[in-house]
Simulated scan of single mutants.
Amino acid sequence: MSGEGSSSGAVTPLFASASSQRQATPAVSPERAAEITTWANRTTARAEYEFKENRAEWTNQEYGKLLAKEGGRLEFRPDGATDDRKSHLMRAAEHLVKRNHAARLAGINRAAEKLLAGETLESKKKDIGR
């Protein structure tokens, strides 16, 4: 825990790479580009903070889901072999939480790039036939 507390102001590599990628030449006015970049940096920083604060809780939730999913599985293993199911599921849960966080950062970066290119953020496309 002491290592985490000392790095509270540190910028993670994902955050640094995301904010540096947004420095490309925008297709919008410089004022709008500054607003978009500020929004994206603020949103990314909030995502990093929420990840740091909620990582253990999210990992436990994912672990519970994985445990429930594998609840009735049969165990086929030779006598004397160990099956550390809890550590295996915890590693898988940690991986899922990290993957979800990376997807969230990628979505923020993708939205910023679209806005800088002058495109709109539409949740639904008009050409899907609805």
Results as ranks from 00 to 15, higher is better:
1 M>Q: 13
4 E>N: 13
5 G>K: 04
5 G>V: 08
6 S>Q: 13
7 S>C: 03
8 S>L: 09
8 S>N: 07
10 A>S: 06
11 V>M: 03
12 T>A: 04
12 T>Q: 03
12 T>H: 06
13 P>Q: 04
21 Q>I: 10
22 R>V: 10
23 Q>M: 14
23 Q>W: 02
24 A>M: 15
28 V>E: 03
28 V>W: 10
28 V>T: 08
28 V>Q: 08
30 P>L: 14
31 E>Y: 11
32 R>S: 01
32 R>W: 00
32 R>A: 01
33 A>K: 02
34 A>L: 05
35 E>Q: 12
36 I>A: 04
36 I>P: 09
37 T>V: 05
39 W>I: 10
42 R>H: 04
44 T>H: 11
45 A>K: 06
45 A>R: 06
46 R>F: 07
46 R>G: 03
47 A>Q: 02
47 A>P: 05
48 E>Y: 01
48 E>H: 00
49 Y>P: 01
50 E>L: 15
50 E>S: 11
51 F>D: 04
52 K>I: 08
53 E>L: 14
53 E>P: 10
53 E>D: 13
53 E>R: 15
56 A>K: 15
57 E>V: 15
57 E>S: 12
60 N>Q: 14
61 Q>R: 15
63 Y>Q: 01
63 Y>G: 01
65 K>Y: 00
65 K>S: 01
66 L>C: 03
66 L>H: 03
66 L>K: 00
68 A>L: 04
69 K>V: 02
70 E>D: 14
71 G>K: 14
72 G>K: 07
73 R>V: 08
73 R>Y: 10
73 R>F: 09
75 E>M: 11
75 E>R: 12
77 R>F: 04
77 R>E: 03
81 A>W: 13
81 A>S: 08
82 T>H: 14
82 T>Q: 13
82 T>L: 12
84 D>M: 04
84 D>K: 11
85 R>G: 01
85 R>L: 09
86 K>V: 11
86 K>Y: 04
88 H>K: 09
90 M>F: 08
91 R>W: 02
92 A>H: 05
92 A>C: 09
93 A>G: 03
93 A>V: 11
93 A>R: 07
93 A>N: 01
94 E>C: 02
97 V>P: 01
97 V>L: 02
98 K>W: 09
100 N>H: 10
105 L>Q: 03
108 I>A: 00
108 I>Q: 00
108 I>D: 00
109 N>S: 15
109 N>Q: 15
112 A>I: 02
112 A>P: 00
112 A>H: 06
113 E>W: 02
114 K>D: 06
114 K>E: 08
115 L>M: 10
116 L>M: 10
117 A>E: 12
119 E>G: 06
119 E>H: 05
120 T>Q: 14
120 T>I: 09
120 T>F: 06
120 T>G: 10
121 L>R: 00
123 S>V: 11
123 S>C: 12
123 S>E: 13
124 K>C: 05
124 K>G: 01
126 K>E: 12
126 K>I: 14
128 I>P: 08
130 R>N: 12
